[in-house]
């Protein structure tokens, strides 16, 4: 396509069927807005999803799309990307889809570093099945399936991703359109498996789950925006920061002899720091941004290199020669 694409080019003709007010709308809008900036022809873009409210996503994008089965999108995307490295492949999944039924596929796709952009919409609930607790729900969560409160400890998606040795790990929030746009761009520009957790409000079954992070009046005190090379400062008046006290991070107030220079400086290339930040849960501020970014050979590139090398070494496949290989004999 010669002419530049616009947001509208990515809007499909399908009626969007999420509940009014669902955070998924904001994410869809951010993705449709970001797409034209990537300059990739529409026909080379594929969205692959599993099952869940979030996984309806591909129907609304006017690209190639595949709404598959519960939890398996990473595996399906792997088969596609490996054989079609020319495509820009996106995976859309939910906290149940990606971390419960599909947890195995998610960790392996991250470990292998298949060149995919993986958007995990985390609403800490099963939306589509009408409100059961999910593997990211906080302990004690009261839902239809846990009337006395859930008793299993939740996953922290960022820690799961880092634990699986993902090469790119980031977090954003549905309502933070600008930040989300930036994170989409970073994910897109990264070569390899890019894991982006997007905190998403399910206003029907888990409304306000991220209120602290989205309510304009208080969010600045709860969000810790990560920027490479910059000190870890937060707060409405940007008067708080993260300092190391020996081996322990702590929140400190800036002033009274403490300056920005005493704070931890974010380094996306520091895996230990990424793990430390991933551990930040309330009352610590919640980090958003890129936790970790590392360039590492991608699985699809490596497998295609093996194929190319084999071809260079053995020549293109010759079926007749292959069939005649080994101990053959003639009967006349």
């Amino acid at each position: 396509m010669a002419t530049a694409l616009t947001r509208k080019d990515f809007v499909s003709d399908q009626e969007v069927r999420w509940c009014p007010g669902c955070g998924d709308y904001a994410i869809l809008a951010a993705v449709q807005k970001a797409m034209p900036e990537f300059g990739i022809p529409r026909e080379n873009i594929v969205f692959i999803s599993g099952i869940g409210c979030s996984s309806r996503f591909p129907y609304y994008m006017d690209t190639y799309g595949f709404h598959t089965i519960h939890g398996r999108a990473p595996a399906i995307a792997t088969g596609l990307k490996v054989t079609r490295p020319d495509l820009d492949v996106w995976v859309v999944t939910g906290d149940g889809d990606g971390l419960s039924i599909g947890g195995n596929h998610l960790i392996h796709v991250l470990r292998r570093n298949v060149d995919l952009r993986i958007l995990l919409f985390n609403n800490k609930i099963y939306g589509l099945t009408k409100g059961q607790y999910s593997p990211t729900s906080e302990i004690g969560k009261v839902t239809k399936s846990t009337p006395l409160g859930s008793i299993d400890y939740p996953f922290n998606p960022i820690k799961v991703a880092l634990g699986a040795h993902a090469a790119f790990v980031a977090r954003s929030i549905d309502v933070e359109q600008k930040h989300l746009g930036e994170m989409l761009k970073r994910s897109h520009d990264h070569r390899g498996a890019a894991f982006l957790e997007i905190l998403q409000n399910c206003n029907i079954f888990n409304d306000g789950a991220f209120n602290d992070l989205s309510d304009k009046t208080i969010k600045a005190d709860h969000q810790l925006v990560l920027e490479h090379g910059k000190p870890l400062v937060f707060g409405k008046n940007r008067d708080k920061g993260i300092r190391m006290n020996g081996m322990r991070p702590e929140v400190v107030a800036i002033g009274n002899g403490l300056s920005v220079d005493d704070l931890v400086v974010h380094d996306e290339k520091n895996l230990s720091l990424a793990f430390m930040l991933a551990n930040f849960e309330p009352p610590m501020p919640t980090p958003i941004g890129v936790f970790y970014a590392e360039e590492r050979p991608t699985y699809d590139a490596l497998i295609n290199k093996q194929l190319a090398d084999a071809k260079a070494k053995q020549g293109p496949g010759d079926l007749r020669k292959l069939l005649n290989r080994g101990d053959v004999w003639d009967v006349n």
Binding site: I48, G79, L80
Partner: peptide
Amino acid sequence: SSAVGAAF
């Protein structure tokens, strides 16, 4: 599943 993706 990967085979389904490759077929696609």
